[in-house]
């Protein structure tokens, strides 16, 4: 080098920093998405209120919302009010449950046909609806991921069997399948020899709902794994003698996860809607358990006299599923903008 050239005056510190990992950048993007944050806050709020429902009952209303209360009464503004009130419409025969009092201490949203506090039942129902929504989604994602990965990775006969299985369930109108399973299992329970699930158990709707949606997640995952398998980095792993387990866990799973994450909130929303539809047909959650769907079903008989019994759970479902959908959009933008989503049940 010529001695007229001075040594570099710029140092290495000005080199760009190493780029952050895909996870961190996705999470950061999600945190910037106002809609997704609002959705998350709404969801957490609904979940928190639902989980706290026993507190509401034991501290505020002091009334078990699972017991019939046909002869009950309460005091509001100094007046004693009957829960079941004489019918003033039509022939004036029979009784009607009380409508909304808009007072959190007594029958905020009124009573149902058995004199039970609708608002408290809604809070308890939220626990069940959310429980079913989330556990079914977890179960379904788990099953679908395993099946999709195995089918897509091994191909051949296993793939053929699983793809046909997906095809069959896919071609089965989803509600018909769920209804068929529910009708059968609710009369007899599920008896698989080593496990016996009672007919009224919450596990039944959870298993049924998780099961019917498996192809909806499993199919795209199979397709994804199928194309991943042809990619150089997987081929390189196979070529270097890595075990199938290692490749599936370390190479394929991390590439499948974003899709599963993107599907997850939507799955929960589907599941809540499906649960409510099954309960609406009286073949979902069975008494004494309550869910938003069963409260809605209770309210159908009262639709024209006490519309709030049916309206309120519907509104809660819309808000919850809306929040989940917004969150799902945020997840998609952050994790996998190319994901093709099907927002339908």
């Amino acid at each position: 080098m010529s001695d007229t050239v001075s040594p570099p005056s710029l140092t290495l510190s000005e080199l760009p920093k190493a780029p952050e990992g895909p996870w961190r950048s996705s999470v950061r993007q999600l945190r910037r998405n106002k809609g997704a944050i609002v959705g998350l806050v709404v969801l957490v709020a609904i979940a928190a209120i639902s989980i706290a429902s026993p507190l509401y009952v034991s501290l505020v209303t002091h009334l078990n919302p699972f017991n019939t209360n046909l002869n009950g009464s309460f005091v509001l503004n100094g007046q004693t009010i009957q829960v079941m009130q004489p019918n003033t419409q039509g022939l004036g025969l029979g009784v009607n449950p009380i409508g909304p009092t808009w007072d959190f201490q007594h029958y905020f949203l009124g009573a149902d046909n058995l004199g039970r506090d609708v608002f408290a039942r809604l809070l308890y129902g939220g626990r069940v609806s959310l429980l079913i929504g989330f556990t079914s989604a977890i179960l379904c994602s788990l099953l679908a991921t395993i099946m999709g990965m195995v089918a897509g990775y091994y191909g051949g006969f296993i793939d053929w069997i699983m793809s046909r299985f997906f095809d069959v369930i896919w071609a089965f109108p989803i509600y018909l399948l769920a209804i068929s399973l529910s009708v059968i299992l609710l009369t007899s329970g599920l008896n698989l020899g080593f496990i016996h699930i009672q007919a009224g158990s919450l596990l039944l709707p959870i298993l049924i709902i998780a099961g019917v949606y498996v192809p909806y997640v499993g199919r795209p995952i199979r397709g994804l794994v199928f194309s991943l398998r042809e990619r150089e980095f997987i081929q390189a792993s196979i070529g270097s003698g890595a075990s199938d387990w290692h490749i599936l866990r370390r190479e394929i799973l991390p590439n499948v996860m974003p899709s599963v994450i993107v599907f997850f909130p939507l799955m929960v929303a589907f599941n809540i809607l499906t649960e409510s539809a099954l309960s609406f047909l009286s073949i979902g959650v069975q008494p004494p358990s309550a869910s938003w769907g069963t409260v809605l079903n209770d309210g159908l008989d009262l639709l024209y006299t006490r519309p709030w019994v049916a309206l309120a759970p519907g509104i809660l479902i819309v808000i919850t599923c809306g929040a989940l959908n917004v969150l799902g959009d945020g997840f998609r933008d952050a994790f996998d903008p190319k994901a093709k989503l099907r927002g339908s049940v």
């Binding site: 010529s2 050239v5 001075s6 710029l10």
Partner: peptide, 8 residues
């Protein structure tokens, strides 16, 4: 400059 061998 950061990549130049003859920086002054």
């Amino acid at each position: 400059a950061p990549r130049c061998s003859f920086v002054m």
